[in-house]
Amino acid sequence: MKRLVVIPLIAALGLAGCASTNEPGAEGQSNNTAAGAILGGIIGGIIANNTGDQSTGKSAAGILAGAAIGGAIGNSMDEKERKIREIAAERDAKALEVQRLREDLLRVSVSSEASFAFNSSTLKPEFKPTLNKVASVLRDDPKVLITIIGFTDSIGSETYNLALSKRRATATANYLISQGVPTRQIVTDGVGEAEPRASNATAEGRAQNRRVEIYLRQT
């Protein structure tokens, strides 16, 4: 399993602006596809400019090609978002949270209460059918890159929490791989208690902090 430095990665994933569509629906999907096309068009124009080709026709061709690529990326991610939101709707609202961070980037937050027993990195049997469905969305797309990151609350030592977060990320990845998602498309890491979502001073806050996040980036 490949390793990565998490904080720079998340910062990089967040660049180029956010196109957040927290509510599912056709309008949100169309907006994301359009945003992808616009971004692709800009990229195509830059490519055409930087290659030294100043002719109007070829610059336009570069813009159109970039728009087509960006539109395809946005459309593909729209479809994944729709399907994963349908999977999430079948469970408790806090078990699986889906957020569109950018036209090419989706975050799926998995509650550790739903997926792991206390102080364990073994997936709960009752959560596996949900991961089976997520795997079915991912396994046939060689252009989706999957980053899985584990997080914990602050109870226990930093060293122990860091190790636990990594084990849980790896367990999640291994299960997706067992369901046919290619190993080469997945990287994992854990940050322990380092990046809390909420205050660790309350039981509710600690529950929010215990999670696994799956980032899907369409290329």
Results as ranks from 00 to 15, higher is better:
132 N>T: 10
103 E>L: 07
120 S>T: 03
67 A>Y: 03
116 F>T: 00
48 A>S: 12
153 D>C: 02
130 T>R: 00
128 K>C: 00
145 L>S: 15
65 A>E: 02
115 S>P: 14
175 Y>I: 02
75 N>R: 11
50 N>W: 13
58 K>F: 15
166 K>T: 06
174 N>V: 01
77 M>H: 05
172 T>M: 15
83 K>N: 10
167 R>K: 12
120 S>A: 14
84 I>G: 03
172 T>Q: 07
89 A>Y: 04
118 F>H: 07
153 D>P: 10
49 N>V: 12
169 A>F: 13
159 T>K: 15
105 L>P: 00
47 I>Y: 14
123 L>D: 02
156 G>H: 01
169 A>P: 00
150 G>R: 06
121 S>P: 02
148 I>F: 04
69 I>Q: 03
143 K>F: 08
122 T>W: 05
62 G>I: 02
93 A>I: 13
116 F>E: 03
114 A>M: 11
174 N>A: 10
64 L>V: 11
167 R>I: 07
88 A>V: 06
176 L>C: 08
108 V>H: 08
87 I>N: 07
54 Q>F: 13
89 A>C: 02
55 S>R: 08
82 R>Y: 09
63 I>A: 11
159 T>M: 12
175 Y>N: 04
170 T>S: 11
126 E>K: 10
119 N>G: 08
173 A>F: 08
147 T>W: 12
134 V>F: 14
55 S>N: 14
41 G>Q: 14
136 S>T: 05
128 K>L: 06
177 I>K: 10
101 L>N: 11
41 G>E: 15
108 V>A: 08
137 V>I: 05
59 S>L: 13
65 A>L: 14
97 E>S: 07
129 P>I: 03
73 I>Y: 06
108 V>D: 07
164 L>Q: 14
59 S>W: 15
145 L>R: 15
81 E>T: 15
44 G>F: 07
48 A>Q: 03
69 I>F: 05
132 N>H: 05
112 S>Y: 04
172 T>I: 05
65 A>Y: 08
170 T>Y: 06
138 L>H: 10
141 D>R: 04
78 D>Y: 00
149 I>F: 00
65 A>H: 07
125 P>D: 13
85 R>W: 08
76 S>C: 08
81 E>W: 03
85 R>H: 13
153 D>H: 09
114 A>F: 13
136 S>D: 13
144 V>T: 09
144 V>C: 11
136 S>W: 01
172 T>V: 15
122 T>V: 15
72 A>R: 08
49 N>K: 10
94 K>W: 08
